[in-house]
Write a protein that binds this DNA or RNA. Sequence first.
DNA 1: TTCATTTCTTAATGTACATCAAGTGCCCAT
DNA 2: ATGGGCACTTGATGTACATTAAGAAATGAA
Lengths: 194, 194
Amino acid sequence: MSFNLILQNIAKHINLTKHEQEVFIGYLQAKTIKRKQFLLTDGDISKHSIFVTAGCLRGYTVDKSGIEHVLSFAPPDWWIADMYSLISQKPGILNIEALEDTEVLLLSKVNQEKLYLEIPKFEHFFRILIENSLVSSQQRLIDGLSLTAEERYNNFCKRYPTLIDHLPQKQIASYIGVTPEFFSRMRGEMIKRR
Amino acid sequence: MSFNLILQNIAKHINLTKHEQEVFIGYLQAKTIKRKQFLLTDGDISKHSIFVTAGCLRGYTVDKSGIEHVLSFAPPDWWIADMYSLISQKPGILNIEALEDTEVLLLSKVNQEKLYLEIPKFEHFFRILIENSLVSSQQRLIDGLSLTAEERYNNFCKRYPTLIDHLPQKQIASYIGVTPEFFSRMRGEMIKRR
DNA sequence: TTCATTTCTTAATGTACATCAAGTGCCCAT
DNA sequence: ATGGGCACTTGATGTACATTAAGAAATGAA
């Protein structure tokens, strides 16, 4: 059943009774998105946390010269959201797009807050989830300041091993913070060297 | 009394009874650190969340060529921690140093977890605290990818208005991710231009 | 298949920063 | 006062990346 993945994801940090599982699942909304369609575009007020069960999403911003910067990829078993907009309920800056046909489960902000009240374990779960996001966000900040593009690429390969083959190079380039042209050249040199 | 600041800080998100306040305060440990002394150095396993009541701390990492990168400043009313090490209980990479004589309140990981169990509102409080950290960390990531050093400096000025005057330039340079030399030049040009 | 679109590569040139090196001013300890 | 450190400045040079432009290769739609 399509809820197994999300229940296992949650079971990594908290244990739910059968009844709690049912309540939780009742709060979810399944949705499928075609490749290149958007779950969220900048300017929207974000209403949902998103959990990917199949396919892959990317979250990115567009800067004032029109360049896209990928903040995160979300393959199956990952959560993604525009935290800024979701928390503040102001228009956000994130675009969330399907890189391929994708299936997601949506947890609305309203339902998420109900969960916190009805089943406090969920507050525990999401605290841990966000703590882990914070740690990787900070690590990426440090990496951006102290590593070369090549070292950041190597980190990326370790972090998203499943994605490397099956993601356009320009998306990876954007994630590690270089242009597709530079990334292509860099890759060429890395291959030549070994 | 020296606990007012932290109680007000917490009151921004949750309401505590008198008794809960007392329990909480009982879990805190006050400490003073002299300028240039450290609360944490890289390689340590972090045991505490830190709340600053007076003075100022900086959290920074040192990369493999010996260059320091400031991750955050902590003036009064701010929390700071090595989240990675605190969560994983593995040796961390953060150094936390006093930029001037500083007073802090320490909340040990053990006590923090007791709080979560005894007064679940604290799980709510820290979830929100960490959500906000995550939002600023992600914003800083985006800024690093899409803004010039000068724009990042302007953002810094808005974000830490109290700190600008009273912080050595090289610390600000490190925070926005440039060398002190470049920062000096840049500032010179900004002043000349207006 | 075929055409159109997107992705990837290659090359020339440009630029925002870093690095290295000296020198200046300032604090503060003796 | 004085000398040693530290923060800051200034200049010359270096480099990791970006930008622009073009063509080749892969992908997808009809």
